[in-house]
Simulated assay, not measured.
Amino acid sequence: MDRGHRELLGRDRLVLDVRDRPGPPPLRFEATDDARRRLLRQGERPLLLGAATGDGCCRDLHLHRLAGYRSPLPPLRSAAMRSGVNQVHQYARWLEDAPQGPLCDGRWELSRRTVFAPGVWDVDLVRDWPGGCLELWCGGGWHGVLPLRELSTPDAPRVKAYRKHAREGTLAPVLLWWVSFLDGWAILDGHDRAVAALTEGRTPECVVLTRVVDEDTWRRQAAELTEECESRTAPLDARPHPGAARHRALMEEGFAHTLAELPYEASSTPSWPLPGGRADWDHLAAAAVFQFPSD
């Protein structure tokens, strides 16, 4: 498979420029026209049903997940975790070739992350199965972690094996997918590794997959920012005064920093139209024998 362009941003950060993939990806979100009903599908299998309630800045997203999720990564063996391979780059290669992953045309960043805000991995980790309720956008958003399969118990055999790796510092990172309309992350791979790290009192090390802005967007933003910078620095040249050079240098430094980050700003997570719209969603919800709140 042609892996397309890869932009290396250091040892633990890169951007994939994915091109020429026809249609939606195997793992994809679908939505009704009003975006109040969501469906996560892998192939033809429904995995998650979501219904938004509330209006204004505060909404709740009621969830029901179904069994059957399959990771886009191959199983990670103990020897592989101890091999010292660069896991950000390894995960990128696996995702590009995955027959059941979320990559579609566009730019995707993968980066290692070891520090999270307080509450992400405890208060806002959705431990309930199969249901759940996310408080979105109220007080700054949800910003938690959503498992796509039921979490194992801390004494499950695989978790116990991973706990040893956690103590040794050889546990492979969890693969998270930043989902913009959830204002949080979904676990793509590493559910048992996450449980193992948490059981050992550690924050799971992660590789985060994020859709970032396309080239046309960030180049247009860069041109607009450059024009703004020139308009704000021009008066300093027209009317020199003591300290003008220092003032100009600070402004240009700030603009340069902003320009450098424009290509890597998070973009919205794609959703595709739900075939059959609300009626299709209602049918799936009824088949799941789950009663969602009404609008």
Results as ranks from 00 to 15, higher is better:
A279M: 06
P74N: 02
D20R: 14
R239M: 05
H247C: 08
D2G: 02
V85F: 05
R127V: 07
A256G: 11
L182K: 03
W94T: 01
L40F: 07
R28T: 08
W129L: 10
L39N: 04
H143E: 14
G50C: 04
W108P: 00
P118C: 05
R158C: 06
F116C: 01
H247A: 13
H191T: 02
E150Q: 15
G50K: 11
K164T: 13
Q90H: 15
R248P: 01
V126H: 01
L125M: 08
V195C: 07
D128R: 11
P147I: 09
W218F: 15
V179R: 06
R219G: 03
V123Y: 09
C58H: 09
A186V: 12
L61S: 04
H64K: 08
F116G: 02
M1K: 02
G184T: 08
R19K: 13
E261K: 12
T269L: 08
W142G: 00
C229Q: 14
G243S: 11
G68P: 12
R219P: 03
D216W: 13
E261F: 07
S271R: 14
R41N: 09
G131D: 15
L259T: 03
F292E: 05
V289F: 04
A244T: 00
D105R: 05
L63Q: 10
A286P: 10
L146W: 04
W94Y: 08
Q221K: 15
S268E: 13
V207S: 06
A260S: 06
R59S: 08
V123G: 02
R202Q: 15
T203F: 06
D189A: 05
P147W: 12
G132K: 10
P102N: 01
C133P: 02
G140M: 09
R11P: 00
L188I: 04
G10H: 14
L188S: 02
H241N: 09
V207F: 12
A197M: 14
D214C: 06
G119Q: 10
C57Q: 14
E7F: 10
R248H: 04
V195Q: 08
A172L: 10
R278H: 07
R149D: 02
L76K: 00
A186N: 07
L40Q: 10
G10V: 13
D97V: 00
A196T: 07
R202T: 05
E135R: 12
T217C: 11
L134K: 03
F116S: 00
R21G: 00
H191N: 02
R19H: 08
P24W: 05
V213H: 07
C57H: 15
D216Y: 11
L49F: 06
P102G: 01
E253I: 01
P24S: 15
L259G: 05
A51F: 03
L284W: 06
D280T: 11
L134T: 06
L274K: 00
D12K: 09
L236A: 08
Q100V: 13
L175N: 04
A35Q: 15
V289I: 09
